[in-house]
Design a binder for these strands. Sequence first.
DNA 1: CGTCTATTTGAATGTACTCAAAAGCGGTGG
DNA 2: CCACCGCTTTTGAGTACATTCAAATAGACG
Lengths: 188, 188
Amino acid sequence: MYDLILRNFAMHILIHEDEQRYVLAGLQHRNVKKNEVLLQADEICRNVYFVNQGCLRLFHTDREGQDHNILFCPEGWWAADMASFSAQKPAFFSISALEDTEVLYFNFNVLERLYLEIPKLERFFRILSQNGFSLFQRRLTSSHSQTAEERYARFQRLYPALERRIAQKHIASYLGITPVFLSVIRNK
Amino acid sequence: MYDLILRNFAMHILIHEDEQRYVLAGLQHRNVKKNEVLLQADEICRNVYFVNQGCLRLFHTDREGQDHNILFCPEGWWAADMASFSAQKPAFFSISALEDTEVLYFNFNVLERLYLEIPKLERFFRILSQNGFSLFQRRLTSSHSQTAEERYARFQRLYPALERRIAQKHIASYLGITPVFLSVIRNK
DNA sequence: CGTCTATTTGAATGTACTCAAAAGCGGTGG
DNA sequence: CCACCGCTTTTGAGTACATTCAAATAGACG
């Protein structure tokens, strides 16, 4: 159960066995059914979720009721509305499950405590946030400098597994285009 | 000289006077002339810059030689290609000055050392990165759900000071549209 | 099997772009 | 102080990329 998350930690920090046990003891566990909502916009994001199995999506619902996916979180990814979690204020984004999903998660207070007790964990989330920061800077650049067709090709190249796993309408939303237009692009 | 940066630290962490002196001792200082390049894409980003006065821009130059601004950094903002800085690998973005600018900066090795000696500093940059992360998630959402005119209105609302200070072509690039089209939008 | 949702296809429309030319503006040197 | 040069902004015409609307088809799930 903790295999994937330990390897995830190990990508950025070196963590001793006793610290490991301590960190894992702070984790909670939950199974989420397809289409179940883990975080509703305007509520406070009280947890950061690690996806052990399945896939989540992070999205915003606009005034017209249209969803805009901004991130897919399959196995090994972390999901949260970081601004909401960090400041414990209402969320802009929502999180829901694209498949039956198994998550591990830290509650806000637990993580704040762990930051103080195990500074390496703070380092881990600093690096994670920096990577996310960079990822979205590049996504925005891509959105500004490339056509929908080029962005779709990029998505296929970067996430070949997701492309087969996720419904077209969700990929279209992620790319910032309509499902209709993605269908046109695909059939070329 | 250190007034602005100390207030910046104080926004997220509480830092004692002796720690303060220690952190400030790690800072370097530099004056940059308008249009001077602080970081060239493909080089390694060796510093994180804090803008004391003036304004920087973070941008990507695509294959056709077109610039795409993704961030303006006036007084009180931090500038770096975080992916490049963090991993000390070639940068995707460049940084240059929109005005004569005064920066303070941490070199990579110095900051890594400070992270270990003063964990609070690592907390500071974690929070900074999380905020940046969220900022760009929302920018991408805005780019996917709003028209150019709405995004321009949003920019004016969020950064009224910058709107008067920065050339139209740079604002257009930031919004992901052509200067020609921004001119059309403005004259309505 | 039937219902509901997702995808495909085509036509008409809209948003933003390219190209081109003119006008404005800022700095520099005579 | 004015004249000139280069760069930025404006304006208009034609075009391309992506959308909306609508109807038909395909797929998923109880």
